[in-house]
Amino acid sequence: MEAALTDIPWALVAPIILLQFILLLVALIDLVRIPATNGPKWLWALIIVFGNIIGPIVYFIVGRRTQ
């Protein structure tokens, strides 16, 4: 199994990890700065961190309150 992991060319996979990380970071920074969200902020933090790609997407669509 360890051999299989080293077989993966990380240079190819790195952009995915990097983009996911940026998405997560942008969502979290926005969550901290936004005055109010639909639902408790701590819940959104959990969704963003543990929701893979879908977490930040769901946050941007339904979590942000702009009014």
């Binding site: 998405l23 942008v26 930040p56 997407i57 941007f60």
Partner: peptide, 14 residues
């Protein structure tokens, strides 16, 4: 300002 210009391109690239 609603960051659509950030998250939608990122998601579409992913």
């Amino acid at each position: 300002r609603s960051l659509k210009w950030v998250w939608i391109p990122i998601v579409f690239i992913l």
